[in-house]
Design a protein around this nucleic acid. Structure first.
Lengths: 118, 118
DNA sequence: CAGGATCCTATACGATACTG
DNA sequence: CAGTATCGTATAGGATCCTG
């Protein structure tokens, strides 16, 4: 411990800022489920996602999708049907989250086993 | 899309529950920075962590460490020195988060570049 | 169908002060 | 040093109703 220089610590703080940047985008109750849904189904309408995710309200879905759009993770496409339908899909950048989601899924499974016990 | 069976959807909902389980443990402002700190330094005292993480209060650190302990991610050890010092370290189970944290860190970096522009 | 507007509650979090 | 207690605020999120 005594050998740790200021640079060493600064390097770590930089890393922490990066993880927090990531978590700022992904935290909350619904972001990951939404991304997960779009990952799984590739292309999805508003009401489909509403159905994919148990317990989410339209208000929340709308709000979260907007934030994901702002963060360039999701692309919104309005189709001029009657009545209008709207498609959501992950951008290329959004797709780069796939590995993380998969890892989190796997970890979630083993964690539950660990906590609840089997 | 039309070929998706009920089973297919149920499988996906299971996966989503798993990611949410993971996020329940990791969400919030401080959990990941704390784990990151313990990952980096291996063993750390309360006041050290307080120093590692910019902006965290002792109240929050105390609270978050307790939750991490309950989730078996962190082990607390009291050393009978005068005055007492307390060591925190990741459990084996906590260490399994390393990959995820590394991935999130890397993703955070590219995401910031993407959003802020370079 | 795809949302927006409104209202309300819970909890996350912050600041400060105190203790063994 | 390693916390706990107390108080206050802000934000996340839920419920319900409305609209082009």
């Amino acid at each position: 411990m005594e050998c740790q220089t200021k640079d060493f610590q600064q390097e770590h703080k930089k890393e922490m800022r990066a993880v927090q940047d990531a978590m700022d985008v992904l935290s909350g109750k619904w972001k990951i489920p939404i991304i997960s849904s779009l990952c799984y189904y590739n292309q999805r309408r508003f009401s489909d996602i509403l159905n994919d995710i148990d317990g989410i309200s339209n208000r929340m879905l709308s709000k979260e999708l907007k934030e994901l759009e702002i963060n360039l993770l999701v692309k919104r496409t309005v189709l001029d049907t009657q009545p209008v339908s709207v498609h959501y899909q992950l951008t290329d950048h959004g797709l780069t989250l796939r590995t993380i989601i998969d890892n989190l899924t796997a970890w979630g499974v083993t964690h539950r086993r660990k906590i609840v016990g089997k």
